[in-house]
Amino acid sequence: MAVEPFLGTRAQRFFIATKAVAVLAIISLVFRLVAEHVDLNKPNYKTIPCYLALFVLAEIFELLMAFDALRLRNVIQLAGILMFHVALVVFAAIQVHETRAALVRTPNCDGSVNYVTCGGRGTLYRKVEHLLIVVPCVIAAAWFIMIFFVRALYYEFGWAIFRIVGANPAMKTMYQFYQVLICLLKFDFFAFTGVTIQLLIVVLSRNSAEFGLTIAAIPVVLMFLIGCGIAVKREIKWLMTFSLFLMLASETYCECQYVVSFGLIDDSLLCVPVYKLVRFYEPGSEEQYETTRATLTVFTIVSILLLLTTFGVGLRCFYDFEKGLYESKTSDTLLLQPKRVARSNNPGEKPNALGQPLEPRMSIE
């Protein structure tokens, strides 16, 4: 069966088309309406630019993931994009509450009393509330459309693993775990970047040392995730061992301090999700996270679950090293590229069933 070219089918093109810019346009409008009346540099209003930045990042990330999944004919990554889209619906719904917490100080008064801080009729919040509610509705509608095209792509790409690893069920299972791990590493980076953006915009002071260290964390974590991807693809045991160790260490503050004591990485450069989650609700620091606590909590819990899942799948992939999958992992991209039909020098000669020219026939005369 021939490999369809990248974006060469209707299902592929329509799947990309679902990544519409309508949501970004609505959120940008909310940002403009709020920016006209409040100082977004004030701590309690920073959740609005944070909301816009996260959605821009999410839409770009989802678009890149969609192109990557279609390029690699990766059905597992398509399923991951569907789950990511559900997470966007939840995040958009949470932002209705977060924006209300940022804007409304007196919920029972109307716009005649105070247009910005009141929550009744004729106020700024009531003006943007309808737009904020439309966002999760649009994303949810796009999700149902995506399901239809992912189903079509499943049948279109379903034979890709057979082309790479053959009919061996054990090899197929090992390759699927490898695909799952690569997909999880990509979502790990988004979850980490999402938490980092919120800390940079809403919480941290630009003059603090932690602000600079948090910015430095992005390329460090990116290199770590790339290193883990290279380790599982090339089956480099020492690098995979180090990657799994860092995943486990980053789950608790104590393990992160152990890493710091060896001078490997600063504790703020690693996710430390459990430690951060506790700080969101500690009496001494909860006020600092007031306007974005719900979003940060969701992102942090998702980060914890993603990291634990990545660690578990990583152990399984480590167990599968040197079991015959190396060649399939290092040549999978080439095997999935459409091949041009070779042409014969004889214009009257027809190709065989594989699209290749027939070998010259020997005459018995």
Score class of each variant (00 low, 15 high):
Ser205Arg: 14
Ile218Val: 15
Asn207Pro: 11
Glu210Phe: 01
Phe189Asn: 08
Met171Val: 04
Val202Ser: 00
Gln198Glu: 13
Phe224His: 14
Glu210Gln: 03
Gln198Leu: 13
Phe192His: 10
Leu213Glu: 01
Gly212His: 06
Leu222Met: 15
Thr196Cys: 12
Ser208Cys: 08
Val180Met: 02
Ile218Pro: 07
Ala209His: 07
Ile218Ser: 11
Asp188Cys: 13
Gly212Asp: 01
Thr196His: 08
Arg206Lys: 14
Phe177Thr: 00
Thr193Val: 14
Asp188Tyr: 11
Ile201Ala: 05
Asn207Phe: 15
Cys183Ile: 09
Phe224Tyr: 15
Thr214Asn: 07
Ile182Gly: 11
Ala216Tyr: 12
Ala216Pro: 10
Phe189Cys: 05
Leu185Val: 02
Ala170Cys: 09
Gly194Ile: 06
Met223Asn: 09
Thr196Ala: 15
Gly212Tyr: 04
Phe211Cys: 01
Asp188Gly: 11
Gln198Asn: 15
Ile215Arg: 07
Leu184Ile: 09
Thr173Ala: 09
Ala217Glu: 02
Phe190Glu: 09
Cys183Thr: 14
Ser205Ala: 13
Met171Gly: 04
Pro169Trp: 08
Leu213Trp: 03
Thr173Cys: 05
Ala216Lys: 13
Phe187Ser: 08
Ala191Thr: 10
Ile197Thr: 09
Leu181Asn: 00
Ile215Thr: 06
Val180Ser: 04
Lys186Met: 11
Leu222Val: 13
Ala191Gly: 05
Met223Glu: 07
Leu204Met: 06
Leu185Lys: 05
Lys172His: 14
Glu210Lys: 00
Arg206Ser: 13
Met171Asp: 06
Thr193Ile: 11
Leu200Ile: 04
Ile215Phe: 00
Ala191His: 09
Leu222Lys: 15
Gln176Ser: 12
Phe211Ala: 01
Leu222Ser: 15
Val203His: 06
Asp188Arg: 11
